[in-house]
């Protein structure tokens, strides 16, 4: 018996083990849980433990969760708030990240390594602590808030005087912290894309008399579209499903969708509803995910002729 296993392992078993182990693991701990969520989204809430069931007085498959999605204001609002916060953060990340990535390709190589490391370094520190850092800055008594308040009072009529700017617990705070925590996700793919562009094209356009901004619009920008889309999706997808940031700095009266899922699940203990919202979020994300996988490989390959 042991001998037969040994021969099998040396022959066809090699592929079997290498493919099989991670396959089984992902099926068991990722795919089955996903199917569970899908199945529970068609169930109904019951007072049993676990709190869902099928059949009984309801039809076997229930669409209660999904129909509530369209009829209850809370869910529609949450989806809209999530999408608009994530989209705003993505656009701001692009506006800030694109010039930064372009600048990184223009500095000398010794500087570039140091600056790239400075972009990545926050990645290795705690995400939670980076969100927390902004809680300190945005608070009513902080030096940062005082600075902004002074600037505001200086620029606006005396009648609009403010003692401090209420930044915390607003969509503004959520977007600001999202830009802060997700900016590296925008910079890194964009930089990888821009770095591979051929500078000869720039120079040719310059020699033919184009002004630098024209060169950027006509030569650099079109070639960096894959990088822009890959980076944008890398920011947009996690931002739309974000839970930590809106919980800590967001407006509790208009929650984002991640918060709604967690609350339905934990506080309301309504598994079918939480599952329906989760499936709806995933369906909304399918488009961005496909865009991302399509453009990510292109961005990494650069624009090959």
């Amino acid at each position: 018996m042991r001998n037969r296993i040994a021969t099998w392992l040396q022959g066809r078993g090699y592929r079997g083990v290498i493919i099989g182990l991670p396959y089984i693991w992902l099926l068991l701990f990722f795919f089955i849980p996903f199917l569970l969520v899908l199945a529970i989204s068609f169930g109904t809430r019951t007072p049993t433990a676990p709190p869902f069931g099928y059949g009984g007085e309801h039809p076997w498959i229930s669409f209660v969760g999904y129909s509530r999605l369209f009829h209850d204001d809370l869910y529609i609002r949450a989806f809209l708030v999530s999408l608009s916060n994530a989209a705003t953060a993505t656009v701001l990340c692009l506006l800030l990240g694109y010039p930064m990535s372009l600048a990184l390709t223009r500095v000398s190589s010794s500087w570039r390594n140091i600056l790239l490391m400075l972009v990545i370094l926050p990645f290795w520190t705690s995400f939670l602590l980076r969100v927390y850092a902004w809680m300190g800055l945005m608070g009513k008594n902080s030096w940062f808030n005082a600075l902004l308040t002074d600037a505001y009072n200086l620029l606006t009529p005396a009648a609009w005087h403010l003692n401090n700017i209420p930044m915390m617990h607003s969509n503004f705070a959520v977007v600001l912290v999202m830009v802060y925590t997700y900016l590296p996700f925008m910079i890194l793919p964009l930089y990888a894309n821009l770095e591979r562009l051929d500078p000869v094209l720039d120079e040719a356009a310059m020699d033919l008399g184009s002004r630098p901004f024209r060169v950027f619009l006509d030569v650099t920008l079109p070639q960096s579209v894959p990088g822009i889309i890959a980076g944008a999706m890398l920011v947009f997808i996690p931002a739309a499903g974000e839970l930590v940031i809106p919980t800590l700095v967001g407006d509790a009266s208009s929650p984002m969708i991640g918060r709604v899922i967690a609350d339905e699940f934990s506080s309301a203990s309504d598994w079918p509803m939480a599952a329906s919202v989760a499936i709806a979020l995933l369906l909304l994300m399918v488009g961005p995910m496909m865009l991302y996988t399509h453009y990510q490989s292109k961005a990494e390959a650069g624009d090959e002729p």
Binding site: Y23, L26, F31, P33, L243, A275, A278, L282
Partner: peptide, 22 residues
């Protein structure tokens, strides 16, 4: 299966794992 967890919102991964364990 190898790509999906990369882009799955963490809330959903967390809840689905908890449902499995329960």
């Amino acid at each position: 299966l190898v790509t999906a967890p990369l882009i799955m919102p963490e809330v959903i991964t967390g809840i689905s794992s908890l449902m499995l364990f329960i």
